[in-house]
Design a protein around this nucleic acid. Structure first.
Lengths: 348, 348
DNA sequence: TCGCCGTGCTAATACGTATTAGCATCTATG
DNA sequence: CATAGATGCTAATACGTATTAGCACGGCGA
């Protein structure tokens, strides 16, 4: 083991080439402004020494001196790994990674952010946000107070998924849930469904609100359009509720709940979609094994990742005018769980 | 939009608290050495101002001044995303992420490294390795010259997967392929197989060498133990070759090749494992759909990721003595493709 | 009274780069 | 031959933090 030799610096290069440190920096950055002139021989000499030594500028010092780092931060607003939802977030990361590579940025995952009260916190004692030029926020729910603080600090960021204003507009790249749900509702109406039920997970997350709003708007002409809440574990109770209401189509926010509901229906001898149509409203957030292809839609996760980087770079260099909020369309999935309801019969 | 307000610095805090910048730094770092003393009242005053302003030290400046960054770099030595192998590498990343979180480090993905001649390069014009305190290297094949350079520079790194020396020992966390393959060969011998064939992908990667070595050592007592090379596309030719040789068991390095081989055998009316046993030597590196559970082993990818971070932190702070090379055991998979060979019959 | 020590803090400097004002030197021009 | 302008480079400084030598002050013992 040799002693950790000191890093080669611009000073060393300068000494070797017989110039000043400033000249090395100018050559390195290929500055050719009108008021910065380097003789070709000098430039070559410096470049030769750089090549010989294999010198590379220290990015940390560079960042301190100038303004940017070419680093994009990624903050995952979910409890620690390993968690069931990690597969759900992976495609976002792939898109982010792909676009970051294209624009020549490195990606900093803020794995060091501590978990307090079951969720990650951006702001804490030893906040490291500034390592990156800007940050992408991932997660089902994002604390509005933290968004507000980011806005206040003028820190460049983009949320993946639409977010309500928080002390100003929040830049985001989201999925157009409202439109996707509306199209599914319309499809159900065309199939002859008249009593629809939205089976949701909660009310707070923007992604839930958007789905509910799309449902409510599109189902306005139906005979009945209710919204209830349910969890995967309560599938039987949910099924009872649907049957009691006479609903023929369930729009289920959570994929796992849809799977459980279908299984419960089958156990009772009901057919899907004959006795009950089940529509899912997005990809599984936790892994659920099933052989059935549910009718529903797909969230353009990779594309959202890509575009979030695109928007972020715009926010960082200030070139993003009003284009800081985007909603991407979701692709509908033609599954086997939405169909024409059987003529009403007395059900047990 | 407000003008991008200047960052709050220690100077600002110092001014507000009526102390010097140095004092702020000392308070912030909770220094309580014998020769550094801060009166409790002063400390409280500074801390109060810090809390009020929400100040957080700039990690970049901190890194420039001190030595460490609490950033672990991850270099993926594969061509750009999207590539088929990304799912193979995901579990490594999960392990890395998990352990990084535990030790409070952030993760820097070097997505900016350019691809030259079909592979990523660590060293290039605008080398950013120094952003991180150390680096984890991922990839099937890693350029020995680059490892040598890392060793020469004294840059802390760890390879995931065993690597040959390169101007010195290479720190790594690998999988013990030799032992895993040897156990599978022994199982085949116990089943009565006498003519074995290793179906490989190449000779250069260390992971291939280790498997071949384990095969060769354990199969020494067999009547015949050959090694051939093959690709998934040439499954029929490979099958011909196996039958001509009279091999009853194929040890297939590449998962996709194993799947193709089984399909080819089935098309010819052969049974697996009756007519031919097929053993796989690791997880799929590209996604291959199959319903069959192949006998083989599982690479402890998440654990390798975790331990690579552990080793790296040791290398960085110099506390890792001789423990810089680890081989982890692979878990055997009891599949349905290794069995007792049918009594030899004339095959078409 | 002097020296000594402990206490609490600050001034100065280093880290490695980018930027800018400006100093020499040389050439062209009147 | 004085001067203006172009050319090629450097000195100085900023970025924000960590570290260290050392200053000022008060109390205490001799």
């Amino acid at each position: 083991m040799t002693a950790p030799l000191r890093r080669v610096t611009q000073r060393d290069i300068a000494r070797m080439a017989g110039v000043s440190q400033a000249t090395v920096s100018l050559v390195l950055n290929n500055r050719t402004d009108a008021d910065v002139r380097i003789a070709p021989e000098t430039r070559d000499r410096v470049l030769r020494v750089i090549a010989e030594t294999g010198y590379a500028a220290d990015p940390v010092a560079r960042r301190l001196a100038s303004r940017f780092n070419r680093i994009i931060g990624v903050f995952t607003y979910e409890p620690a790994f390993p968690s069931g939802s990690r597969d759900f977030f992976h495609p976002f990361l792939l898109g982010i990674e792909e676009y970051a590579e294209r624009v020549g940025c490195d990606l900093l995952l803020f794995t060091s952010a501590p978990v307090v009260d079951g969720r990650r916190r951006i702001f804490h004692q030893d906040n490291r946000l500034r390592l990156a030029d800007g940050c992408i926020l991932l997660g089902r729910e994002i604390d509005g107070a933290e968004l507000q603080r980011l806005n206040g600090d003028g820190y460049p960021y983009v949320a993946v998924g639409r977010r309500d204003d928080a002390g100003g507009p929040v830049p985001y790249v989201g999925a157009d849930y409202a439109a996707a749900v509306a199209r599914l509702v319309e499809a159900a109406l065309r199939h002859g469904h008249r009593r629809l039920t939205y089976v949701g997970m909660g009310m707070t997350a923007e992604s839930s609100q958007d789905r509910r709003q799309g449902f409510g708007a599109a189902a306005a002409t139906a005979e009945s359009a209710r919204q209830v809440s349910a969890a995967p574990g309560a599938a039987d109770a949910t099924l009872d509720d649907l049957l009691a209401d006479g609903s023929t189509a369930a729009f289920v926010e959570d994929f796992a709940t849809a799977v459980a509901l279908e299984a419960a229906a089958r156990r009772r001898g009901l057919t899907v979609p004959g006795d009950l149509s089940i529509v899912t409203l997005g990809d599984p957030t936790v892994p659920v094994p099933t052989d059935i292809v549910f009718t529903g839609f797909r969230i353009p996760r990779e594309e959202m990742g890509r575009q979030s980087v695109e928007v972020l770079t715009g926010v960082i260099d200030g070139s993003a005018g009003g284009l800081q909020q985007r909603l991407l369309p979701c692709e509908l999935v033609e599954g086997s769980t939405l169909g024409t309801p059987d003529p009403a019969v007395d059900r047990p």
